[in-house]
Design a protein around this nucleic acid. Structure first.
Length: 250
DNA sequence: ATCTGTTTATCGATGT
DNA sequence: ACATCGATAAACAGAT
């Protein structure tokens, strides 16, 4: 049988599901979140197979992003304009592939209705907060002092949605780690915080504002992330043996 | 226009 | 056998 060249699997379909591929892409990024276009790029860079029929598989990929609760769409920060949102992994979904197969998960990750509603409410609030921030910025070019940068991602929520303290102690120096939280906690704050690790030294975007530290539960969950995913993503250096086609249009 | 995102439906593969 | 899971198609809305 023809040996796959260097983990790229040549023109063969790689033995990963779209969910695995997407998780790899996301996880290989310094901040553990990527816009759609960069997920595409991660995949086409490493797997020549996906340089063709882009319409097909990209449609499937998008379907997976929307359909699966394991992927969470995080609104862009106002200081990072661009197209589309960022996609990240739900921390509770880190062990999705615990059975070791990157083709088929033991069980699909599904958020409980309540958790999903809470998350959606929080994300929606964040999105509208961002819109307001941009609107204000547009009308008043000098940076609005009314909005402290450190609380950028702590939009005010209705009391029923935000069990957080009304005044937010996590100012520029924030360490909101030690607060005891239920294990299923998953907030936009934790999502938007970059990770410490040593994977990639150069962040794709300049860091324009103080970034809070990681939440402890997030780190813990991250460290439990399936080893094969990490290993796979790590081993898969981009293969530029043949330069990617300039335009993947069919 | 094109890209991004959501949703529904179908179907083959795989797990129990 | 049946239930899930994953891939694909497709219609469609919204954003850029």
């Amino acid at each position: 049988m023809p040996r796959p060249s260097r983990e790229s699997y040549g023109d063969q379909k790689p033995p990963y599901s779209y969910i695995s591929l997407t998780a790899m892409a996301i996880w290989s990024s310094p901040e553990r979140m990527l816009p759609l276009s960069e997920i595409y790029r991660f995949i086409t860079d490493r797997f020549p197979y996906y340089r063709r029929n882009t319409q097909r598989w990209q449609n499937s990929l998008r379907h997976n992003l929307s359909f699966n609760d394991c992927f969470v769409k995080v609104p862009r920060r106002p200081d990072r304009p661009g197209k589309g949102a960022y996609w990240t992994l739900h921390p509770q979904a880190f062990d999705m592939f615990e059975n070791g197969s990157l083709l088929r998960r033991r069980k699909r990750f599904k958020l409980l209705k309540g958790d999903k509603d809470n998350l959606n409410a929080e994300l929606a609030a964040l999105a509208s907060f961002n819109r307001a921030f941009l609107a204000r910025q547009a009308s008043a070019p000098p940076p609005p002092p009314a909005i402290p940068s450190a609380s950028l991602y702590t939009p005010p929520l209705g009391p029923q949605l935000s069990p957080e303290p009304a005044e937010l102690p996590e100012a520029a120096t924030i360490t909101m780690l030690p607060r005891e939280r239920p294990r299923r906690d998953f907030t936009i704050k934790s999502l938007l915080e970059p990770d410490s690790p040593r994977l990639s030294p150069s962040p794709p975007h300049p860091v324009l504002m103080p970034i809070p530290r990681l939440e402890a539960s997030y780190v813990a969950a991250a460290q439990r992330y399936h080893a094969e995913l990490l290993a796979a993503a790590h081993a898969l250096r981009p293969c530029y043996l043949t330069p990617p086609p300039p335009l993947p249009v069919a």
